[in-house]
Nucleic acid binder design. Structure first.
Lengths: 188, 188, 188, 188
DNA sequence: GATGAATGAGAGTTCATTCAT
DNA sequence: GATGAATGAACTCTCATTCAT
């Protein structure tokens, strides 16, 4: 059944994101999923395979969620707030898949990595599209390079969230408003 | 001798950054350092200790290098180019210690983590100081929040470099000029 | 199952008594038990734990066996023959736990040692009780100190057996009759 | 020089008797002897060799000491007190070599063991001689088997001392007088 | 001759994977 | 199909021994 797989992947995400690939034990994934450890092998060939499927699944979900946000009929400013919240809740619950992939890039064979990287490039692409729309609507200035604007926005928000977590401060603080204000003011 | 320790730490950085804490084998660190695996234990008590000392050493070096750059008598724009180059060469050779620490936060006992996080907070602090100077010199606008400006600058440059690496593009491309232009234009 | 544990302990007794704590290899215990070395860790936390459990088990068995002998309805002389045989077969098959404990007293933490020593004091206690009965039955003289008599009996028989083993002589020799005669004659 | 060897053996006795053969580290023997760990190998070929030489040395010393006691012009009773004291101080300071040899009998090659066992048989032999003298002097009854008497005396006193140590009682207690009384009364 | 830094074989232990139930 | 007891390769760490100083 598909929801058994889903259930295992869900548990895998939580364990792998906490302990990394080598630090995660199949037994703990099984326990978290409420099943026996042998059962996992009925659905996935190996730890490596499970790891790979988990990444694919996580990226898919992230992209789907991000696209849903970006395709809403809102101003860019509103979308930025949404994106920060989405990013935050995603990171809190799961992980930053780009980091995992970077980190464990020696775990998977090259052909699988290529596959993953292809998916991953979708993310800035989605963001760029939203920027272009904002330029056309006049929310941002015309001479802006959309790729660079996307880099600045995503990078700043990731860094902001990271700083908060490192400092053990509340990532919900209203300073996020200041960040978005400053970003938009610079890009308008 | 201090250069024996240094040599081991150097090899440890390369291995840990490639394979993560659990994925790294003491024997490989030793091989890379050109010594026997037992020798490491003459300089470090355990794998965990070596990991901790490596992080401390790496952060120290990063902070020293960054401060050296920031305290030069140059315009902010020039400094940003320098910082990007520094960051890039650092990441290429070693690793992003913030990522490692985030990732392996279950490895070290809490008291050591606190110690590391204290050091780590020095980094944005250094950057903020440079921003404040730039504001006073009139290179940036007076109403700018220096903390947020630092977040935007460091986040954007990190993201830019990350994207390049992911896409297997040359991170030296002149697009970095566009990024810095856009950043400064927004913050002036 | 309990007989899996029992099987491992059995093998552990044989190995530990032959090679001592530090000289015994977990792999050899496993081989002797006819299982894989990882399997032991399903039943015992560590080598130390196994060692401790083995001692407890061995002492228990010894005390139970000794008590069974002593509570039989026989004369003291008959009992002494039985005890010698029991002691002998026990030592041949397993080991002298008092020696092991003395020898490896640096291996176990103090609280476990206290636990073991408490058990061990049962042994002379059992013997003393038998002596008291013999005194009451008139088999031994009335003014005898039972503790001292027990010490003399157990010590002499242990020494006798030890001498035989050292000299590679047959410990079944009928000289044991002379020893018991001499002992009883002295204590009557 | 001979006293360097002596010094190392002295330290070896203390370490081996505390931790057993496999539990003892060459470095600790060296530290205790106040020399560098490589130096030991200038005097002994290997750990095994040192162990063997230590046993030989210890047995020699024990036999010499025991003979000195037994050849004094005293009654058997007085000698028994001396022997108990000698035994006790010897065990406290060093170890029971018979136990060590029993315990570590798998450590040394057979030919060396044979050599040691030959020495070891000297001990009861010395005691037997003293018993025979006591019989001739009329201190013990004429029909006594000297070997058995020696076994009873040495065994009882060893057991007595062992019990005291196990119970953490003072091994100097005057109960030793009761033991010797009882022994002599039985053997007279 | 004395040293102790360096070595690597070998120890205890873990954990991905298998397979009888 | 699901399980978890069993396995053994592979890990971290120790320590007898060597050898350049």
């Amino acid at each position: 059944m598909e929801d058994k797989r889903e259930n295992i992947i869900r548990s895998a995400i939580e364990e792998f994101s906490k302990y990394g690939y080598h630090g995660t034990r199949m037994e703990n994934i099984a326990k978290r999923a409420g099943i026996g450890k042998g059962t996992i092998y009925g659905y996935f060939d190996s730890k490596k395979t499970l790891f790979y499927e988990m990444i694919k699944h996580g990226i898919d979900e992230y992209i789907r969620g991000l696209n849903a946000l970006l395709s809403q009929d809102k101003t860019l400013e509103e979308k930025l707030y949404d994106i920060y919240d989405f990013h935050k809740s995603y990171l809190k619950q799961f992980m930053d898949f780009r980091q995992v992939i970077m980190r464990e890039r020696e775990v998977l064979p090259k052909e699988l990595m290529v596959d993953i990287l292809k998916d991953l490039k979708e993310i800035p692409h989605s963001m760029e599209k939203a920027i272009k729309e904002a330029i056309q609507k006049g929310e941002l200035r015309k001479d802006l390079n959309p790729g660079i604007a996307a880099t600045i926005i995503m990078g700043s928000m990731g860094q902001f969230y990271g700083n908060k977590v490192f400092s053990n401060e509340d990532p919900n603080s209203k300073e996020i408003g200041d960040l978005i204000d400053t970003l938009l003011r610079g890009l308008k």
